[in-house]
Structure formats: C-alpha cells, structure tokens
Design a binder for these strands. Structure first.
Length: 247
DNA sequence: AAACCATTCAACCGCCGAACG
DNA sequence: ACGTTCGGCGGTTGAATGGTT
C-alpha cells in the first residue's frame, strides 16, 4: 500500500526537482526507485521519479528530431513488434519508449493506419495489427543469460554519440533462412502464407522455431515460443534482420 | 488582437509479472 | 501457497504551444 502517496506532488517537474533527482541518481545509481524520493528529497512518487529520469533526465537521451532512418526503422520494428515501445526504443539509441510512442501516435499512426483502413475491403477477414505477441518482459535473475553464461547484447546502454550502432561484440549472424523469415515478417501481407496465427494473435511457424532456437548459440530448449521470444528479440541482431547497414 | 482549433509531448494511470517475506 | 511490494510497461490525458481565421 502506498499510503505515502497522500500529499505527493503531481504535474510538471520544476528545475529544482530535476536537479535533486539527477544528483540523487548520479550518487546512488538507477534502481531502488522506492528510495529515490526520500534520497533525492523530492515530494514525488517512485513512479514519477523513474519516469522523469528515464524520459527526460538521462544523459544519453537524444531530444532531437527523428531522422528519416530512425523513422524507417521505427516503422519496420513496429511491423515486427507491434506496440512494444520499449523494445522499439531499445533499438533506437537515445530514444525513450515515451518518445517513440508519442512520435508514432502523432506522426505515423495518422499516415499509416488510416490509409490501411480505407483500403481494407469491408468483407475481407482482417489480420490483427500485432504481428507477434511477446509475453515475458522480465526474467529471473537466475536465468543463464543473466548470470554471464550467455552473451547478452544490450543496445540500450548509453552511447557516445546519437547514431545507431551495433554492439561491440555482436552474436553470430543468423542463418540465411532465419533472416528470410524475419524479412518476411517485415514486408507485410505475405506474412499470412504458410505461417500460423493463433486465436489470440500469436504468430508462429513451427518449422522455423527449432532453427532459431538453435541459432542462439546455446543448447537452449524451449517448448513455447512465447517463453523465449522477448529474450530472442532483445538479444538477436535486429540490424541484420532488418537488412540494414550498420552505421 | 483575440478566439478558436489542432498538435505535441510530459506526465499520470492502471495493470502485469517477478521477487520477496 | 499466498499476499505484498516493486519495477516496468502501454494507454491515455491534459497543459502548453503553434497555427489559422
């Protein structure tokens, strides 16, 4: 119960609050958000502090305009991931999930969605706009890839500049057929052919499953794709999947 | 100059899953 | 096994700003 919420400040952050929060994070680091309001001396809830830091105060945030490349990548990723803003933002260095979400809602949704709606024959069976449902968002600290046994690619780490770049030690590239699969997932309507759409919108193709899992480099066996898909998406080299030059 | 409308985006809200006692 | 807490997410809201009449 967050009884301490009574009397908490809301609304826009002041410069003074920003300074206090920034100072606190620099001193104690990110995390332990429940302690941050007390440590920083701001009358805000933990969520508000976290959001302010992640969306505004973090030093690596790129607050400039979205470049054409970024927009292109965002569209591709959205086609692949759906409204998984945090995952999309993770592939756009310096961008926050809030930025991506806002940009999509204000700039791209109007451009992309309405025309699709208009083009859609009213009698035609429609495919839900969520290509993949990636269920798990967080993982146990005991999982192998969190204990140093498995390579983890983390593109969300701060970068020296604001340009997209591959990780320093990228994992082995996927096999050609794997790239083809993900390419296919990005190109649109043909996604329906030869693959499986489950009732709840999950996209699945069993033949490819084993191939992908094997391609992760570990003897990692998982029965249900929904159990590993987030990890997979996070850790695989999406730059290659998207067929983009690493810049 | 003022009123109105549209757009942008920071911030809040409610929910979920993991961790912990 | 269960309840609580915490971190994190996506959806939504509303104030601020810009543009138009």
């Amino acid at each position: 119960m967050e009884s301490v919420l009574v009397g908490m400040r809301k609304g826009a952050w002041t410069d003074e609050e920003d300074k206090l929060l920034k100072k606190c994070i620099e001193k104690y680091g990110e995390g332990k958000w429940h302690q941050v309001p007390c440590r920083a001396g701001v009358n805000r809830c933990r969520k508000s502090c976290r959001l302010r830091w992640l969306n505004y105060l973090r030093p690596d945030i790129n607050r400039g305009k979205f470049s054409a490349d970024e927009v292109d990548l965002m569209i591709r990723l959205h086609k692949l991931l759906g409204n998984r803003w945090s995952l999309i933002a993770g592939r756009l260095p310096g961008r926050t999930s809030n930025d991506v979400k806002n940009y999509w809602n204000t700039h791209l949704q109007k451009k992309l969605v309405p025309p699709m709606e208009e083009l859609k024959p009213k009698t035609q069976k429609t495919i839900q706009p969520i290509p993949i449902r990636l269920q798990p968002r967080t993982f146990s600290k005991n999982l192998p890839w969190l204990t140093g046994k498995t390579f983890i690619q983390d593109n969300t780490q701060p970068t020296d500049d604001n340009h997209p770049k591959p990780s320093p030690a990228p994992p082995p590239p996927p096999e050609d057929n794997e790239i083809s699969l993900w390419d296919n997932m990005l190109v649109g309507p043909e996604i329906e052919n030869g693959s499986t759409w489950s009732i709840d919108g999950h996209y699945w193709d069993e033949k490819v499953t084993s191939s992908i899992v094997g391609g992760c480099g570990e003897n990692y066996v998982q029965e249900d794709p929904r159990e590993w898909s987030d990890m997979f998406i996070d850790n695989m080299n999406i730059w290659e999947i998207l067929g983009m030059d690493k810049q």
